[in-house]
Amino acid sequence: MAANIFEKIITNINKNKLKYIFLLIIVLLILPFVVENQYVLHIAVLTLMYVLLSSSLNVIVGYTGQYNIGHVAFYAIGAYTAAIISTRFNLNFIIVILISGFVASLFSLMLGIPTLRLRGIFFAFTTLGFAEITRLTILNWRSLTRGPFGIPGVPIPQIFGMRLSTNTHFYFMIFILLFLMLLMTYRIINSRVGRAWISIREDEQASASMGVDTFKYKIMNLMYGTFWAGVGGAFFAYFAGYVSADSFILDESFRFFAMVLVGGTGTLAGPILGGAVLTILPQVFRSFARYQMIIYGVAILLIIHYKPEGLLGGRTFKRDLSESEDN
């Protein structure tokens, strides 16, 4: 019964997309003025940040069908680049965020060149290896990253002489970043590049045989998605004021992936819901200290069970069973 109501809401949303988007934007804009509770605002900022991060992963997973389970590496690279630069040089935070995004993107280029030709799950493994190598390097390279101590004292961002230090300030910062990202992504998805991506996702071999330079498009896709992950990381550095390798463990990568799957892959809206649900859920159960993680794990299992295509019904990838193995 409740499931049917849920389905009806989803269909209604899908039919009147523009109206709901407009509504959502209005609600989000009003939120910090209506809510005084700083804790709720803090969670709201984190939620938008995770939406940004999972959206950036969704571009990679949902649109070219590349399984990236090491996305946390680019988040970490963005965060550490921002922390390192901002604590050593006096640069405007907008420039720092941009640089961080590009650095993350660059690393994905280095990773992608040798590995993108690997199929599905093999590529996934290399991303996993890369994520762990990144984390361990951060921990060991003490002269650059201060190793396990992390980098504290990330300066407060300033613009036009105004110090952006409150939750409300950061809220609007991440809102703008997210808005830009979604807008840009929407435009790209609906362009020739986006169509190339989707054709790669649907059937890479067919697409290649039609003359699409799949490698070039896959690299572009990877670099685009990881750029925004780096931006998200840089934002995190400023918001938290402190970065440490503890925040960039493999669990986070799985979390992003879960957000994408739970929300629904291959749609722009999917990660919005997925990111929101999986960020807010642990907070709801915070008073159950010991059982918090149990509930979290079970929740993920339940959602995937009842809606394997994701809450907003993106497409799932059916396993390719038509191929037979040559022995």
Binding site: Q38, Y39, H42, I43, L46, G150, N167, F236, A240, Y242, S244, D246, S247, Q283, R286
Partner: peptide, 11 residues
């Protein structure tokens, strides 16, 4: 986790 500790502080 440090960032969770920060969220708790906020609460």
């Amino acid at each position: 986790k440090p960032n969770v500790a920060a969220s708790i502080a906020q609460e």
